[in-house]
Simulated assay, not measured.
Amino acid sequence: MGRLIAFIILLIPGIMAAYGIKLMRDSVFNKLLEPYPVLWLQFSLGLLFTILGIGFFAGFLLNRDRKKGTVSKRFQK
Rank of each mutant, 00 (worst) to 15 (best):
M1V: 12
G2C: 07
G2V: 08
R3Q: 13
R3C: 08
L4T: 09
L4F: 15
L4K: 14
A6I: 14
A6E: 15
A6V: 08
F7R: 14
F7H: 12
I8G: 06
I9W: 12
I9K: 06
I9M: 02
L10M: 15
L10P: 02
L10V: 12
P13D: 00
P13A: 02
G14Y: 08
I15Y: 10
I15E: 03
I15K: 05
I15P: 08
I15V: 11
M16V: 13
M16H: 04
M16F: 13
A17W: 00
A17L: 01
A18M: 13
A18K: 12
Y19I: 09
I21V: 15
K22M: 07
K22P: 05
L23P: 00
R25A: 13
S27G: 15
S27T: 11
F29H: 10
K31F: 15
K31T: 15
L32H: 05
L33K: 15
E34N: 07
E34R: 14
P35C: 03
Y36I: 05
P37A: 07
P37K: 07
P37M: 03
P37W: 01
P37I: 08
V38E: 10
V38M: 03
V38S: 11
L39W: 08
L39I: 15
L41Y: 14
L41S: 07
F43C: 14
F43V: 06
S44Y: 09
L45Q: 10
G46N: 00
L47I: 00
L48R: 07
F49Y: 05
T50V: 02
T50Y: 08
I51L: 08
I51R: 01
I51T: 04
L52A: 15
L52C: 14
G53Q: 02
G55F: 00
F56D: 10
F56C: 10
F57K: 04
A58K: 09
G59R: 03
G59Q: 05
F60P: 09
L61F: 02
L62R: 09
L62H: 01
N63I: 08
N63K: 06
N63Q: 14
R64D: 11
K67E: 10
K68C: 01
G69E: 00
T70Y: 06
V71R: 01
R74Y: 12
R74L: 11
R74P: 14
R74H: 15
R74E: 13
F75V: 03
F75T: 07
Q76R: 09
K77H: 11
